[in-house]
Simulated assay, not measured.
Amino acid sequence: MKHTLDILPLKSWLDTGDQPLVIAGPCSAETEDQLVSTAHLLANTGKVNVLRAGIWKPRTRPGEFEGIGSVGLEWLKRAKAETGLLTATEVATAKHVEEALAAGVDVLWIGARSTANPFTVQEIADALVGVDIPVFIKNPVNPDLSLWIGALERVNRAGIKKLGAIHRGFSSFEKTAFRNEPMWDLAIQLKSACPELPIINDPSHICGNRELIPYIAQKAMDMDLQGLIIESHIDPSVAWTDAKQQVTPAALAELLDNLSVRHAESNNPAFEDKLAELRKQIDKLDDAILQQIGDRMKIAEKIGQYKRDNNVTILQVNRWDEIVEKRVQLAKALSLSEDFATKYLELLHNESIRKQNEVMNTKPVAEA
């Protein structure tokens, strides 16, 4: 389903030429010297468009460093005056918005915890009425596309037309290499639902460690996201928050140098012709796959009828385990990932159970 947002193209309010937008700076503004010194190093790379710094830090538990507070806004102001970089910070209350605007902050973003609470988003949106400032909205902590779009709509209805989204990954009970699971499909769904919306990626919060950041940053470029927001500290080893996921300005410059920035479209007619031919092949295979799945579900319905007539339960755990084991082995032999094969089989299984459940709860024609 498409969602219409009344917004301006990214290039009209943050023109970065042919390069992706880069927002960088420390997770937290800690001291004036730390912030201003980091800003100078970032500006000297010639690759950063906006300086970011957390002034107010929403933490999971009390007692941890929760941001330097309003005094940090003066440090951002000084950094901007000395380097020429635009500045950005996170806001979580109407008071934050008012203080950031009064201090001349150029870009605001709404964090994942705030996005998850419509009351908080509405409070921020109300404080933005009549204001002309870019606002980015991070995805909510949990994978809820409607909640993300709802936050964007609230801020847009407040009159903010310079609007963008930040893909920072999602919380997951499963322990993986990432701090927050990327779940790229959610970013793709947002692009499909709001095609005019600029989306940038936050590899720092997805990774949770600096070693994986180049991989996620490149993946974001390959997924046609419009930029990156990366945490950069003059000395990450002594950072007061999120030390493991921050990079030095020099490391950031190297990362950006090594990025391959690709284009969404090509002006090469031969390329377009070949791509169209390959896509036709894909379309033909997709049609065949869906037809095969349809045939499979007809058999599942017959199985449901047979189980109903013989008073047997729908779920047969041993049979399901057997299917997964055999099909995953086949998937590996076909160079398909185990994760894909498992998820695909789960989808098929769930649909089969739904079909059988319909049959099991319908009386045979003779009885009806």
Rank of each mutant, 00 (worst) to 15 (best):
P9H: 00
L14C: 14
L14H: 11
L14P: 05
G17K: 04
Q19A: 06
H40W: 00
L42H: 15
V48D: 12
E64T: 13
E64L: 12
S70T: 11
E74G: 13
T83D: 10
L86Q: 13
A88Y: 02
T93P: 12
L108E: 11
G111K: 07
A116Q: 15
T120R: 15
A125S: 15
K138T: 04
P143K: 02
A151S: 07
L152V: 12
L152R: 10
N156E: 09
G159T: 00
K162S: 02
G164I: 13
E174Q: 05
N180F: 15
E181Q: 13
E181D: 12
E181K: 01
P182N: 02
P182T: 06
S192I: 05
R210W: 07
M221R: 06
L228H: 02
I230D: 13
H233M: 11
W240Y: 02
W240S: 11
L256C: 04
V261P: 01
A264N: 01
S266N: 08
D273I: 10
L290D: 12
Q291N: 10
Q292I: 04
I293C: 02
D295C: 05
R296P: 00
R296L: 08
I299Y: 03
G304R: 03
Q305F: 01
R308V: 00
N311L: 04
L315R: 05
K326A: 08
R327I: 01
A331F: 10
L347S: 08
I353T: 11
I353S: 11
V359M: 06
V359P: 08
V359D: 04
A366K: 10
A368L: 15
